[in-house]
């Protein structure tokens, strides 16, 4: 049986793509405001949890986690993971066409490689078929 996905399941993968990259961006922005954390001042990590950008990032990553777990329940890890990288492409394209930022040749090449990588996996089966144990056949 070749495992293909329904449109609803592609929507879950879309949520996996978008929430991960947006969440990471928010966290990164928050941590630049918090400042450097050293081994002697690990308590600062708890202070970081009060930063609104870090809080928004965490909420976004919770949404990511829910959609990621749902996807893992019907697809292989090596099928779901490349889709998380596709979020980087979305962020890069948004920054180009919305924020009018410059995208270097390296970045365009990176975008092309990620799109190809996701395309390779998306064209294949989503789940590895494992032979069922004898007891389950009876």
């Amino acid at each position: 049986m070749k495992h293909t996905l329904s449109p609803q399941r592609y929507l879950i993968l879309l949520a996996v793509m978008l929430t991960a990259s947006v969440g990471d961006t928010l966290l990164s922005h928050g941590m630049t405001q918090v400042g450097p954390v050293s081994l002697q001042h690990l308590g600062l990590l708890l202070v970081a949890l009060k930063n609104p950008w870090v809080i928004c990032g965490i909420l976004m990553l919770l949404g990511f986690f829910a959609s990621y777990l749902t996807a893992l329940s019907w697809a292989d890890l090596t099928f779901v993971l490349p889709s998380t990288a596709f979020g980087y492409v979305v962020v890069a394209l948004l920054s180009r066409f919305w924020l009018h930022e410059h995208i270097s040749v390296y970045r365009w090449l990176g975008i092309l490689l990620i799109v190809c990588g996701v395309g390779f996996v998306a064209n294949g089966p989503s789940l590895t078929e494992h032979p069922k144990p004898e007891s389950e056949h009876r």
Partner: peptide
């Protein structure tokens, strides 16, 4: 996990890996 990581999935992992590094340039 005994997933069937065939040539297609290895290529995808390598492409995505290199792509992510290039995106950060």
């Amino acid at each position: 996990l005994h997933e069937n990581v065939d040539r297609r999935r290895w290529l995808a992992a390598i492409f995505v890996c290199v792509g992510v590094v290039l995106l950060s340039q």
